[in-house]
Amino acid sequence: METYIVMAVSAIFVNNILLAQGLGSCPYLGTSKSMDTAIGMAMAVIFVLVMAGAATWIADHFLLKPCNIEFLRTLVFILIIASLVQFVEMFMKKSVPSLYAGLGIFLPLITTNCAVMGACLMNINEEYDFLTALINASFLGAGFGIALILFAGVRERIILNNVPEALTDTAIGLVTAGFISLAFMGFQGLG
């Protein structure tokens, strides 16, 4: 139990996948202009990350390792993630339309979110067992979500202010992200 708590603190705060490792910055900037989209994206990422974490772990241990074709890992993982996203989208549309209405438009974007692929590769590199891999994936996803929602909050306020013309939009967004990331660096003392 204790190790999982340490893992949670590490994945969410100390080694936040976005703010400390710089993974997943495209959707970070793309979907943070309003709180609603940020929350939608955060939920979709957590959801897909856990599913992808499970699927890639299974594929790695029961397909790639036994057949000795680990060199195809990149190819297989990205295909799994892409088809998983597609599948989740179809499934959601049919059976949980209310959820689809909220998350649907974010799902296709997740395929090229490197936070998902990155987290799956990390799970494999860190040699986690199945349960630990799943838990780690969900905490990494939660860390991403928290960072995204925090950022959206700041960004909604920036839009209301006068920003020098050259700095508008993405540029000020990146600088803001830098400061949030700086704030998160304070957590490194915990490790």
Binding site: L19, A20, Q21, G22, L167, T170, A171, I172, G173, L174, V175, T176, A177, G178, F179, S181, L182, M185
Partner: peptide, 10 residues
């Protein structure tokens, strides 16, 4: 570190 990356790029 990561913050430097964000700020430099911005």
């Amino acid at each position: 570190k990561a913050p430097g990356a964000f700020v430099t790029l911005g």
